[in-house]
Design a protein around this nucleic acid. Structure first.
Lengths: 186, 186
DNA sequence: ACCTGAACACCGTTCAAGT
DNA sequence: ACCTGAACACCGTTCAAGT
C-alpha cells in the first residue's frame, strides 16, 4: 500500500497558523502534552519542524498560547429567560471542553496567554449584571464560577487517573455548581 | 571572598530525598518550573546531576511527584466549634500555599501523583460529615471546596500576570467561598 | 515568501567506573 | 552504598541557503 506519490504532493495544503494549532491539539489530545515537540508536529504536518517558525515566530511559546486560546475561549450566551439555566449550560459546555482537552489544562494554569480568559470572564460577568447583581458581586461571581469549573475539571482529570471507586462526576459537578448558583442573590 | 575550601568540603551534608525536593522547590519558586532541570538541581546541591537518581530512581517523574505532594498535602483540622470557620481557615491556608508555590500549580493539574490530594479531600469530607451532612453531600461538598480553591488560585496567578486593574483578590476569593459555604445545608 | 538542512546549546537518562 | 564522567538520543532554536 504505497501512498500516491504523484506531482500533487508538491502542492500540498499550505501551512497556516490554524492548521498548525489544530495538528498540535490533535497530538496533545492523543499522546499527551509531553509528546508535543516541534519535530513531531512538523512530521504530522509533513513539513520540516523549522517551517513552523515562519508562521509562529515566537516558536513553541506561541504554539502553546494558541492551544490555550483554542480551548479556553468559550463565552457564555445570555438567554433572556433564565440566567441560572444559561450559566448551567455554559458550565456544562466548558467542563466538557476542558475534559476533552485535558492535556491543555496545565497550560491554562500558567501565566501563559493571560488575555485568553478575559472574554469568557466578561461574558459571565455580563450575565450576572443583567440578572440584577451589582458590579462587584457580578465580577466576584464570574470568577467564582470560572474558578470552580476549572478547578473541578482538574480534580476530575486527576481522580479519573487514580481510578478509585466509580463516581458520577457529572452529578458531583452539578451539585457543586448548584451551591454557587443558589448562593448568588437574585 | 573565597569560600572556605577546607577538607570539610568533602564530608558535606549527605544527599537525601527531602533535601533534593526542597532544593527543587526553591528553584521552581525562584526561577519557575521551566528552569528546573536535573543538571541545575545537581548544581544547587553541589553534586553531579546523576547522583540524584540514586535517591529518586524514577528520576524527574519522581521529583515532580514529590513537589506535588509537598505542596498539595494540607488536611483541614476539625475544630469542634464552628465547622464553617474551620473550612474558611483551611481554604485561606491552602490558597496561600498554592500562591506561594504557583510554579507547582500546573503539576497539580496533571494525572501526576494521583494520591496526593486524597488525604486533604478526606479531611474536608470528614468535617462536613461531622457537621451533619449525609455521606454523598459531604463528598460532593469536599470536591466543590477543593475544586474552587484550586481553580481560583489558578485564576489569580494568571490575572496577576495580566496585571489589569488592581483587584482585592483575597476579598474576591472569600466572596466566592462564602457562596459555597452558604449553600452547604446545616 | 516559504521551506530546508546543518549546526548549537541544552535536555533526561543509562551505564561502566570509581571510592 | 553513593557518587562521577562519558555517552546517547532527543530537545528548541538560529541561520545561511535554497526555491
Amino acid at each position: 500500500m504505497v501512498r500516491q506519490p504523484s506531482v500533487a504532493a508538491q502542492h500540498r495544503e499550505p501551512l497556516t497558523r490554524d492548521r498548525i494549532i489544530e495538528a498540535a491539539l490533535h497530538i496533545v489530545d492523543g499522546q499527551g502534552l509531553g509528546r508535543l515537540t516541534m519535530r513531531r508536529l512538523g512530521d504530522a504536518l509533513e513539513v520540516e519542524a523549522m517551517a513552523i517558525y515562519h508562521h509562529l515566530p515566537r516558536g513553541k511559546e506561541e504554539l502553546l498560547d494558541g492551544l490555550v486560546a483554542h480551548v479556553a475561549v468559550l463565552p457564555a450566551e445570555a438567554r433572556s429567560a433564565d440566567w441560572r439555566a444559561a450559566l448551567r449550560s455554559w458550565a456544562d459546555a466548558y467542563r466538557a471542553r476542558l475534559l476533552a482537552h485535558a492535556g491543555v489544562l496545565p497550560l491554562l494554569v500558567t501565566r501563559r496567554n493571560p488575555a485568553a480568559l478575559s472574554g469568557t470572564t466578561a461574558s459571565l460577568r455580563e450575565i450576572l449584571r443583567q440578572a440584577g447583581l451589582p458590579e462587584q458581586s457580578a465580577a466576584d461571581g464570574a470568577h467564582a464560577l470560572l474558578g470552580y469549573v476549572i478547578g473541578h475539571a482538574a480534580l476530575e482529570v486527576r481522580d479519573t487517573a487514580a481510578a478509585e471507586e466509580s463516581v458520577d462526576w457529572h452529578a458531583r459537578f452539578s451539585a457543586g455548581l448548584a451551591l454557587i448558583l443558589r448562593g448568588l442573590p437574585t
